[in-house]
Amino acid sequence: FMKKHLNNPYEINLMDELTLKGVTQYYAFVQERQKVHCLNTLFSKLQINQSIIFCNSTQRVELLAKKITELGCYSCFYIHARMDQQHRNRVFHDFRQGLGRNLVCSDLFTRGIDIQAVNVVINFDFPKHAETYLHRIGRSGRYGHLGIAINLITYDDRFSLHKIEQELATEIKPIPKVINKELYVAEFSPENIEEQQQNGGG
């Protein structure tokens, strides 16, 4: 049908608008009861500019946001699908303005994350579908920014992990002991270092 009716078709796969390019993907293996501890350690170790943390339900968004606030030293916003649109817009706007460092949310971004300041995305709950994963982690093509994605994987997530890697033809690697800052911290990216050297005139 395509060959017969379309003359030199230009194929656009809408999924291609979102890209995993520039995003280094890691997983940490955890039990449910270790997740908060794991997240706390990530907060303390990573050089986070802004982060988005995804949960799989609105209830878990609220519980996690409460928990993070209890931990004290981390500011955090949250949004989920059961909040009214006006409230959501305001929180999202404030986050985009950089008023908070962390945003906990459920799946309500339909076009991927396009906030440049976000350099770390954490899947507190691993999604079940490749499309959801791509929307959470993928970036619109026009932003060629670097970032890391960290997936908290439980034993129950093993099928989803395998399926999503296969469907997106990507690899999610075990989290290394030390994460190279060049992968997600703008000041350390090779391009910027080169620029600085050139501007500084040696």
């Binding site: 009861r33 270790q34 997740k35 908060v36 501890h37 706390n40 996690l64 928990k67």
Partner: peptide, 13 residues
């Protein structure tokens, strides 16, 4: 995840 979680955060995960 949220009630019985390991609250001992003195050590890194």
């Amino acid at each position: 995840c949220f009630n019985n979680c390991d609250d001992n955060f003195k050590d890194d995960f």
